[in-house]
């Protein structure tokens, strides 16, 4: 009897993991961004995302190249340096059933794109906004970025004298409704946070420390693998439970050790308490934890803040059921008889 090959595993929308892949990466071997791309693929596969229902956005830089390395069957737009946020802001109006996923970097977001970034927050643009944060300009060969820590020494650059921009703090200050930080060396957490971000109705900022193995991976550098491994301080163990799935808490979860956050779409986030009980819906507490982390040099990770109930940018515009980009002339051009009325409204 011939052995039939095991059928490739498919998810609920009938796709294999291969259907979520992209082109081969042209980033450096070991780049944190590659690991994040893998987790985006895994998260989308596990969440049964239809790739045609995603549009990818990026700016310019190593991070912004990465949207070609996942979700080949999704539309994508690799735009201008620092200008991803406005591009996505316009595009999300076309078809509300298509999810926007943006990948930016620390230069792209925290330097040249800071204005657009902050305004995407205050408008609550419905999109996942991942910052692959490595503290350095990779594609131009190793200059300091705005998130580089004070005192960082880089080859050819000397010592950084300025204070770093904290992307999560900036997002929070700008009224982001979802702020998380993770570490590319902690793929499990990265994946869960991506899932939660996808389920979030509004802007979801994921600041992922993603080491640059070529220009900024010295052991003592904040954005290195070694530092991250030694200093990561997760706020909680985090798990995403999709809508309709049964929540099963394992035996070791004692009462009072778990928090649940219900998302807008009915899915649930389970947060298991670690050293402390952290409430991610408390904005003041979120500021405090970021401030403490900065003061004590911790790489604090996890879901820092979430508000699942705020209306998004597109919610505010009272749009029709039919996607705007499928409306036709009959929907878009006022009837001929209106022209006389308009002329009569002029003097």
């Amino acid at each position: 009897m011939m052995a039939t090959p095991a059928p490739a595993q498919v998810n609920k929308v009938g796709l294999t993991k291969l259907d979520y892949k992209g082109a081969p990466s042209t980033l450096c071997q070991g780049c944190g961004h590659n690991s994040i791309a893998s987790q985006i693929i895994a998260a989308c596969y596990e969440m049964d995302v239809v790739p045609e229902k995603v549009m990818k956005f990026s700016g310019i830089g190593c991070s912004s190249k990465s949207p070609t390395y996942f979700l080949n069957r999704s539309f994508g737009f690799n735009s201008l340096h620092g200008r991803m946020a406005p591009l996505a802001t316009g595009a999300v109006f076309a078809d509300l059933s298509v999810r926007a996923l943006g990948v930016s970097g620390d230069g792209d977001t925290a330097s040249i794109g800071m204005g657009g970034f902050k305004h995407a927050m205050r408008r609550n643009v419905p999109m996942v906004y991942i910052v692959e944060n490595n503290g350095v300009y990779g594609l131009t060969k190793g200059q300091f970025s705005a998130t580089a820590e004070e005192g960082l020494q880089l080859k050819h650059q000397g010592v950084n004298q300025y204070m770093p921009v904290d992307i999560c703090m900036e997002a929070l200050a700008a009224q982001a409704t979802f702020v998380a930080r993770s570490f590319a060396g902690d793929p499990k957490q990265v994946k869960e946070l991506i899932k939660i971000a996808f389920a979030h109705n509004g802007i979801a900022v994921l600041d992922i420390i993603s080491p640059c193995v070529t220009f900024n991976n010295q052991e003592n550098a904040f954005h290195s693998y070694a530092w991250g491994k030694d200093h990561e301080a997760p706020l909680h163990e985090i798990a995403f439970v999709p809508k309709l799935a049964e929540i099963q808490l394992e035996g070791e979860f004692e009462e009072g050790t778990v928090r649940e956050v219900t998302m807008h779409d009915g899915s649930t986030v389970i947060l298991k308490k670690l050293e402390r009980d952290y409430d991610p819906t408390d904005r003041a507490r979120a500021f405090q934890v970021l401030e403490e982390a900065q003061k004590n040099n911790w790489l604090v990770t996890g879901l820092i803040y979430i508000n699942p109930q705020k209306p998004t940018l597109t919610d505010m515009h009272n749009l029709p059921e039919t996607p705007l980009n499928r409306l036709t002339e009959a929907d878009l051009r006022p009837r001929p008889e209106t022209i006389a009325q308009i002329n009569a409204m002029m003097f």
């Binding site: 549009m55 737009f77 735009s79 201008l80 200008r83 946020a85 406005p86 591009l87 996505a88 802001t89 316009g90 595009a91 999300v92 109006f93 076309a94 078809d95 204005g115 657009g116 305004h119 597109t314 515009h317 009272n318 749009l319 029709p320 705007l324 980009n325 409306l327 929907d331 878009l332």
Partner: peptide, 24 residues
């Protein structure tokens, strides 16, 4: 509403939004 009008944060963003919408 079969439309959306946004006051942007600057002209860099104004055209960026319009290009995003036009592309889509």
């Amino acid at each position: 509403q079969t439309y959306a009008v946004l006051q942007a944060e600057d002209e860099l963003a104004a055209i960026g939004m319009a290009v995003g919408a036009g592309w889509a």
